[in-house]
Simulated scan of single mutants.
Amino acid sequence: MINKVDILLMLLWALVGCEPAPSTHGFAGLGSDATGFAQVEPDAEIGYPEALNQHPDFRIEWWYVTANLESESGETLGIQWTLFRQANSPSPQREGWANQQLWLGHVGLTRANQHFSADRYARGGVGQAGVAMDPFTAWIDHWAIQADDQAREFTLTAHTPEFSYDLVLAKVGPPVLQGNQGVSVKSPQGQASYYLSLPFLQVSGSIQIGDETLSVTGEAWLDREWSSQPLAEDQEGWDWFSLHLDQGDKLMLFRLRHRQSQDYFSGTYISADGTAHPLQPNQIRMQPLRQHSVAGRRLPVEWQLSVDDFGIDLRTQALNPNAWMATGIAYWEGPIRFEGSHSGKGYLEMTGY
Protein backbone atom coordinates (compact mmCIF):
# COMPACT_ATOMS: atom_id res chain seq x y z
CA MET A 1 0.00 0.00 0.00
CA ILE A 2 1.60 1.72 0.46
CA ASN A 3 2.00 6.49 0.36
CA LYS A 4 4.85 7.06 0.93
CA VAL A 5 5.71 10.66 1.02
CA ASP A 6 8.52 13.03 1.86
CA ILE A 7 6.59 14.27 4.86
CA LEU A 8 8.94 17.09 5.78
CA LEU A 9 8.64 18.76 2.38
CA MET A 10 4.95 18.08 2.09
CA LEU A 11 4.22 19.15 5.65
CA LEU A 12 5.76 22.53 5.03
CA TRP A 13 3.78 23.05 1.84
CA ALA A 14 0.54 21.79 3.38
CA LEU A 15 0.89 23.99 6.45
CA VAL A 16 1.18 27.11 4.31
CA GLY A 17 -1.65 26.00 2.06
CA CYS A 18 0.39 25.58 -1.13
CA GLU A 19 0.65 22.85 -3.72
CA PRO A 20 4.12 21.24 -3.62
CA ALA A 21 6.39 21.77 -6.57
CA PRO A 22 7.19 18.71 -8.73
CA SER A 23 10.14 16.77 -7.34
CA THR A 24 13.22 15.90 -9.37
CA HIS A 25 14.08 13.13 -6.91
CA GLY A 26 11.28 10.64 -7.43
CA PHE A 27 7.67 11.05 -6.38
CA ALA A 28 7.47 13.32 -3.30
CA GLY A 29 11.26 13.38 -3.07
CA LEU A 30 11.46 9.68 -2.17
CA GLY A 31 14.39 9.20 -4.54
CA SER A 32 16.56 11.87 -2.92
CA ASP A 33 19.92 11.07 -1.35
CA ALA A 34 19.70 9.29 2.01
CA THR A 35 23.26 9.74 3.30
CA GLY A 36 23.44 9.23 7.07
CA PHE A 37 20.26 7.17 7.32
CA ALA A 38 20.09 3.40 7.75
CA GLN A 39 19.98 1.42 4.51
CA VAL A 40 18.02 -1.64 3.43
CA GLU A 41 20.25 -4.74 3.54
CA PRO A 42 19.42 -7.95 1.63
CA ASP A 43 20.12 -10.34 4.53
CA ALA A 44 18.08 -8.64 7.25
CA GLU A 45 15.78 -10.77 9.41
CA ILE A 46 12.27 -9.37 9.77
CA GLY A 47 10.20 -10.83 12.57
CA TYR A 48 6.64 -10.39 13.76
CA PRO A 49 5.42 -8.62 15.83
CA GLU A 50 8.76 -6.78 16.08
CA ALA A 51 8.22 -5.32 12.60
CA LEU A 52 5.28 -3.32 13.96
CA ASN A 53 7.70 -1.15 15.94
CA GLN A 54 9.10 2.11 14.56
CA HIS A 55 12.55 2.27 12.95
CA PRO A 56 13.78 5.86 13.53
CA ASP A 57 17.21 5.25 11.98
CA PHE A 58 15.44 4.98 8.62
CA ARG A 59 14.11 8.11 6.94
CA ILE A 60 10.51 7.07 6.27
CA GLU A 61 7.98 4.40 7.22
CA TRP A 62 4.25 3.81 7.41
CA TRP A 63 1.54 1.73 9.07
CA TYR A 64 -1.19 1.30 6.50
CA VAL A 65 -4.63 -0.33 6.80
CA THR A 66 -7.33 -0.75 4.14
CA ALA A 67 -10.58 -2.65 4.66
CA ASN A 68 -13.35 -3.81 2.34
CA LEU A 69 -16.56 -3.79 4.37
CA GLU A 70 -20.24 -4.58 4.09
CA SER A 71 -23.08 -3.26 6.24
CA GLU A 72 -25.96 -5.32 7.61
CA SER A 73 -28.13 -4.04 4.75
CA GLY A 74 -25.58 -5.21 2.16
CA GLU A 75 -24.00 -1.84 1.35
CA THR A 76 -20.35 -1.99 0.24
CA LEU A 77 -17.90 0.43 1.89
CA GLY A 78 -14.16 0.85 2.34
CA ILE A 79 -11.90 2.53 4.89
CA GLN A 80 -8.27 3.58 4.98
CA TRP A 81 -6.09 4.38 8.02
CA THR A 82 -2.44 5.38 7.59
CA LEU A 83 0.29 6.74 9.87
CA PHE A 84 3.56 8.02 8.37
CA ARG A 85 6.82 8.85 10.10
CA GLN A 86 9.49 10.96 8.40
CA ALA A 87 12.90 11.98 9.81
CA ASN A 88 14.31 15.31 8.65
CA SER A 89 17.83 14.33 9.77
CA PRO A 90 19.62 11.10 10.80
CA SER A 91 20.07 9.75 14.34
CA PRO A 92 20.96 10.26 17.14
CA GLN A 93 17.44 11.14 18.23
CA ARG A 94 16.89 14.49 19.91
CA GLU A 95 14.53 15.12 22.80
CA GLY A 96 11.31 17.14 22.99
CA TRP A 97 10.56 19.76 20.35
CA ALA A 98 14.07 19.29 18.96
CA ASN A 99 13.17 15.76 17.87
CA GLN A 100 13.63 15.30 14.12
CA GLN A 101 10.63 13.00 13.58
CA LEU A 102 7.54 14.32 11.83
CA TRP A 103 4.25 12.42 11.70
CA LEU A 104 1.30 12.47 9.33
CA GLY A 105 -2.02 10.62 9.56
CA HIS A 106 -4.50 9.97 6.75
CA VAL A 107 -7.96 8.46 7.10
CA GLY A 108 -10.58 7.84 4.43
CA LEU A 109 -14.04 6.36 4.03
CA THR A 110 -15.63 5.42 0.73
CA ARG A 111 -19.13 4.37 -0.27
CA ALA A 112 -20.60 4.18 -3.78
CA ASN A 113 -21.86 7.78 -3.77
CA GLN A 114 -19.63 9.45 -1.16
CA HIS A 115 -15.96 9.74 -0.31
CA PHE A 116 -14.45 11.36 2.77
CA SER A 117 -10.85 12.05 3.75
CA ALA A 118 -8.94 13.82 6.50
CA ASP A 119 -5.35 14.30 7.63
CA ARG A 120 -3.47 15.28 10.76
CA TYR A 121 0.12 16.46 11.40
CA ALA A 122 2.34 16.13 14.47
CA ARG A 123 5.90 16.66 15.66
CA GLY A 124 7.77 13.84 17.37
CA GLY A 125 9.18 14.01 20.88
CA VAL A 126 6.15 15.55 22.59
CA GLY A 127 3.71 12.61 22.73
CA GLN A 128 1.25 13.85 20.12
CA ALA A 129 2.06 10.93 17.81
CA GLY A 130 4.23 7.85 17.96
CA VAL A 131 4.54 4.09 18.20
CA ALA A 132 5.01 1.96 21.32
CA MET A 133 5.31 -1.79 21.88
CA ASP A 134 4.18 -4.30 24.56
CA PRO A 135 1.45 -3.99 23.41
CA PHE A 136 1.80 -2.36 20.02
CA THR A 137 0.12 1.04 19.69
CA ALA A 138 0.45 3.60 16.88
CA TRP A 139 -1.32 6.92 17.18
CA ILE A 140 -1.63 10.49 16.07
CA ASP A 141 -3.83 12.51 18.41
CA HIS A 142 -7.00 10.41 18.87
CA TRP A 143 -6.56 8.23 15.77
CA ALA A 144 -5.01 4.94 16.81
CA ILE A 145 -4.36 1.29 16.10
CA GLN A 146 -3.62 -0.94 19.07
CA ALA A 147 -2.92 -4.68 19.36
CA ASP A 148 -3.42 -7.19 22.14
CA ASP A 149 -0.39 -8.66 23.93
CA GLN A 150 0.27 -11.24 21.20
CA ALA A 151 -0.55 -8.95 18.24
CA ARG A 152 -3.38 -11.25 17.14
CA GLU A 153 -6.17 -8.70 17.36
CA PHE A 154 -6.20 -4.96 16.70
CA THR A 155 -8.56 -2.11 17.46
CA LEU A 156 -8.65 0.66 14.85
CA THR A 157 -10.22 4.07 15.51
CA ALA A 158 -10.59 7.35 13.68
CA HIS A 159 -12.97 10.20 14.44
CA THR A 160 -13.54 13.28 12.26
CA PRO A 161 -16.41 15.81 12.05
CA GLU A 162 -17.83 14.02 8.99
CA PHE A 163 -17.21 10.35 9.74
CA SER A 164 -15.71 7.94 12.22
CA TYR A 165 -15.08 4.26 12.64
CA ASP A 166 -14.35 1.86 15.48
CA LEU A 167 -13.23 -1.53 14.20
CA VAL A 168 -11.75 -4.80 15.47
CA LEU A 169 -9.26 -6.60 13.18
CA ALA A 170 -8.65 -10.26 13.98
CA LYS A 171 -5.53 -11.89 12.48
CA VAL A 172 -6.68 -15.20 10.97
CA GLY A 173 -3.57 -15.98 8.91
CA PRO A 174 0.19 -15.51 9.06
CA PRO A 175 2.18 -12.35 8.33
CA VAL A 176 3.67 -12.26 4.84
CA LEU A 177 7.11 -10.99 3.84
CA GLN A 178 6.92 -9.20 0.49
CA GLY A 179 9.69 -9.38 -2.09
CA ASN A 180 12.78 -11.42 -1.20
CA GLN A 181 12.23 -12.34 2.45
CA GLY A 182 10.88 -8.87 3.18
CA VAL A 183 13.15 -6.82 0.91
CA SER A 184 10.91 -5.25 -1.72
CA VAL A 185 12.90 -3.92 -4.68
CA LYS A 186 11.41 -0.82 -6.30
CA SER A 187 13.60 -0.16 -9.35
CA PRO A 188 16.18 -1.74 -11.68
CA GLN A 189 18.79 0.32 -9.80
CA GLY A 190 17.98 -1.58 -6.61
CA GLN A 191 16.13 0.98 -4.47
CA ALA A 192 14.17 -1.02 -1.91
CA SER A 193 12.17 -1.09 1.29
CA TYR A 194 11.50 -3.58 4.06
CA TYR A 195 7.91 -4.70 3.55
CA LEU A 196 5.69 -6.95 5.69
CA SER A 197 1.92 -7.44 5.27
CA LEU A 198 -0.94 -8.80 7.32
CA PRO A 199 -3.37 -9.68 4.50
CA PHE A 200 -5.50 -12.08 6.57
CA LEU A 201 -7.55 -9.82 8.83
CA GLN A 202 -11.25 -10.26 9.59
CA VAL A 203 -13.09 -7.07 10.52
CA SER A 204 -16.12 -6.21 12.62
CA GLY A 205 -17.30 -2.95 14.13
CA SER A 206 -19.19 0.23 13.35
CA ILE A 207 -18.98 3.24 11.07
CA GLN A 208 -20.57 6.63 11.73
CA ILE A 209 -21.42 8.94 8.80
CA GLY A 210 -23.17 12.05 10.05
CA ASP A 211 -26.12 10.77 12.11
CA GLU A 212 -26.04 7.34 10.43
CA THR A 213 -24.48 4.37 12.23
CA LEU A 214 -23.63 1.19 10.30
CA SER A 215 -22.58 -2.17 11.68
CA VAL A 216 -19.99 -3.65 9.32
CA THR A 217 -17.95 -6.78 8.69
CA GLY A 218 -15.31 -7.58 6.09
CA GLU A 219 -11.64 -8.12 5.31
CA ALA A 220 -8.64 -5.88 5.97
CA TRP A 221 -5.00 -5.66 4.87
CA LEU A 222 -2.25 -4.08 7.01
CA ASP A 223 1.09 -3.07 5.47
CA ARG A 224 4.31 -2.20 7.28
CA GLU A 225 7.03 -0.64 5.18
CA TRP A 226 10.21 1.27 5.99
CA SER A 227 13.16 2.59 4.00
CA SER A 228 15.45 5.58 3.55
CA GLN A 229 15.39 5.84 -0.26
CA PRO A 230 12.57 3.67 -1.64
CA LEU A 231 12.38 5.20 -5.15
CA ALA A 232 14.63 6.03 -8.08
CA GLU A 233 14.98 9.68 -9.08
CA ASP A 234 12.84 9.37 -12.23
CA GLN A 235 9.92 7.46 -10.67
CA GLU A 236 6.95 9.81 -10.72
CA GLY A 237 4.28 7.74 -8.98
CA TRP A 238 2.76 4.29 -8.58
CA ASP A 239 -0.36 2.15 -8.94
CA TRP A 240 -0.75 -0.38 -6.09
CA PHE A 241 -3.31 -3.16 -5.64
CA SER A 242 -4.16 -5.37 -2.65
CA LEU A 243 -6.69 -8.05 -3.62
CA HIS A 244 -8.75 -10.53 -1.60
CA LEU A 245 -9.64 -13.42 -3.90
CA ASP A 246 -12.90 -15.20 -3.11
CA GLN A 247 -11.08 -18.57 -2.78
CA GLY A 248 -9.02 -17.15 0.11
CA ASP A 249 -5.82 -16.34 -1.78
CA LYS A 250 -4.39 -12.80 -1.81
CA LEU A 251 -2.55 -10.80 -4.45
CA MET A 252 -0.40 -7.67 -4.14
CA LEU A 253 0.77 -5.87 -7.30
CA PHE A 254 2.35 -2.51 -7.97
CA ARG A 255 3.64 -0.53 -10.92
CA LEU A 256 6.17 2.28 -10.43
CA ARG A 257 6.00 4.73 -13.32
CA HIS A 258 9.22 6.13 -14.78
CA ARG A 259 9.38 9.42 -16.64
CA GLN A 260 11.81 8.29 -19.34
CA SER A 261 12.15 4.51 -19.11
CA GLN A 262 10.05 1.40 -18.73
CA ASP A 263 7.78 1.05 -15.71
CA TYR A 264 8.87 -1.26 -12.90
CA PHE A 265 6.52 -4.04 -11.72
CA SER A 266 6.48 -6.19 -8.61
CA GLY A 267 4.06 -8.25 -6.56
CA THR A 268 3.32 -11.34 -4.50
CA TYR A 269 0.79 -14.12 -4.95
CA ILE A 270 -0.21 -15.36 -1.50
CA SER A 271 -1.85 -18.77 -1.16
CA ALA A 272 -4.75 -19.17 1.25
CA ASP A 273 -2.40 -20.89 3.72
CA GLY A 274 -0.13 -17.83 3.75
CA THR A 275 2.62 -19.15 1.46
CA ALA A 276 4.16 -16.21 -0.43
CA HIS A 277 5.14 -16.52 -4.09
CA PRO A 278 7.20 -13.44 -5.09
CA LEU A 279 6.54 -12.28 -8.66
CA GLN A 280 9.18 -11.05 -11.08
CA PRO A 281 8.51 -7.94 -13.19
CA ASN A 282 8.13 -9.96 -16.39
CA GLN A 283 5.37 -12.09 -14.83
CA ILE A 284 3.03 -9.11 -14.32
CA ARG A 285 0.82 -7.23 -16.76
CA MET A 286 -1.16 -4.19 -15.60
CA GLN A 287 -3.19 -2.47 -18.31
CA PRO A 288 -5.31 0.66 -17.65
CA LEU A 289 -8.71 0.37 -19.33
CA ARG A 290 -10.86 3.40 -18.49
CA GLN A 291 -9.87 6.92 -17.48
CA HIS A 292 -11.90 9.15 -15.16
CA SER A 293 -11.60 12.85 -14.37
CA VAL A 294 -11.40 13.79 -10.71
CA ALA A 295 -9.87 16.82 -8.97
CA GLY A 296 -8.55 18.09 -12.31
CA ARG A 297 -6.67 14.85 -13.03
CA ARG A 298 -7.26 11.93 -15.40
CA LEU A 299 -6.80 8.58 -13.67
CA PRO A 300 -7.36 4.94 -14.70
CA VAL A 301 -10.20 3.60 -12.53
CA GLU A 302 -10.57 0.29 -14.39
CA TRP A 303 -7.67 -2.13 -15.00
CA GLN A 304 -6.81 -5.48 -16.54
CA LEU A 305 -4.42 -7.41 -14.28
CA SER A 306 -2.72 -10.61 -15.44
CA VAL A 307 -0.27 -13.07 -13.91
CA ASP A 308 -0.30 -16.03 -16.31
CA ASP A 309 1.87 -18.27 -14.13
CA PHE A 310 -0.88 -18.30 -11.47
CA GLY A 311 -3.89 -18.26 -13.81
CA ILE A 312 -4.73 -14.64 -12.93
CA ASP A 313 -6.67 -12.55 -15.45
CA LEU A 314 -8.81 -9.91 -13.74
CA ARG A 315 -10.78 -6.82 -14.66
CA THR A 316 -11.09 -4.35 -11.77
CA GLN A 317 -13.66 -1.63 -11.21
CA ALA A 318 -13.70 1.14 -8.60
CA LEU A 319 -16.58 1.28 -6.15
CA ASN A 320 -16.44 5.08 -6.42
CA PRO A 321 -14.33 6.63 -9.20
CA ASN A 322 -14.25 9.90 -7.22
CA ALA A 323 -12.29 8.42 -4.29
CA TRP A 324 -9.79 11.29 -4.26
CA MET A 325 -7.89 11.87 -1.02
CA ALA A 326 -8.08 15.66 -0.87
CA THR A 327 -5.41 15.80 1.82
CA GLY A 328 -2.24 17.92 1.99
CA ILE A 329 -0.61 15.16 -0.08
CA ALA A 330 -3.34 14.31 -2.60
CA TYR A 331 -3.82 10.97 -4.38
CA TRP A 332 -6.51 8.46 -5.34
CA GLU A 333 -7.35 5.66 -2.90
CA GLY A 334 -10.44 3.50 -2.84
CA PRO A 335 -12.07 0.06 -2.74
CA ILE A 336 -12.43 -1.98 -5.90
CA ARG A 337 -14.08 -5.21 -7.01
CA PHE A 338 -12.92 -7.55 -9.75
CA GLU A 339 -14.05 -10.46 -11.90
CA GLY A 340 -12.56 -12.74 -14.55
CA SER A 341 -10.46 -15.77 -13.68
CA HIS A 342 -11.19 -14.91 -10.04
CA SER A 343 -13.63 -12.61 -8.28
CA GLY A 344 -13.28 -10.62 -5.09
CA LYS A 345 -12.60 -7.23 -3.58
CA GLY A 346 -9.58 -5.13 -2.78
CA TYR A 347 -8.01 -1.68 -2.73
CA LEU A 348 -6.26 0.52 -5.28
CA GLU A 349 -3.91 3.44 -4.63
CA MET A 350 -2.69 5.74 -7.41
CA THR A 351 -0.18 8.56 -6.85
CA GLY A 352 1.63 11.07 -9.03
CA TYR A 353 -1.18 11.83 -11.50
Rank of each mutant, 00 (worst) to 15 (best):
W332F: 15
D141P: 03
G108L: 05
G130F: 06
Q100E: 10
N322I: 02
L251N: 07
T275Y: 00
F200Y: 09
L256P: 01
A122V: 10
Q80Y: 03
T351I: 03
W103G: 02
P135S: 10
G17A: 10
R315G: 13
F37S: 07
P135G: 13
D313K: 13
I2P: 08
F116Y: 14
W324K: 01
K186H: 09
Y64R: 06
L156T: 09
E50N: 01
G210P: 03
P199M: 00
V40R: 06
F84K: 05
D57C: 10
S91N: 13
H258R: 15
H277D: 06
Y347E: 03
G124N: 11
Q128I: 11
Q178Y: 10
G96S: 12
L104F: 13
R224A: 04
Q54D: 14
M286Q: 11
F27E: 12
M252P: 00
H159Q: 15
F37D: 06
G26S: 11
S227T: 05
Q229K: 11
W226Q: 00
E45L: 13
Q93N: 12
T351F: 05
N282S: 13
A323T: 05
Q235Y: 02
F310K: 09
G29V: 12
L243M: 08
Q189C: 04
S197M: 07
W143H: 09
D57S: 13
R259P: 06
D309K: 10
S187Y: 01
W332G: 05
L243N: 02
G130Q: 08
S306V: 02
A192K: 03
R290Q: 15
D239K: 07
E70K: 14
N282I: 04
P321Y: 00
L245H: 10
D223S: 05
V5H: 10
V183K: 11
A112Q: 15
G108A: 15
P278T: 01
A44L: 02
S73M: 04
W238K: 00
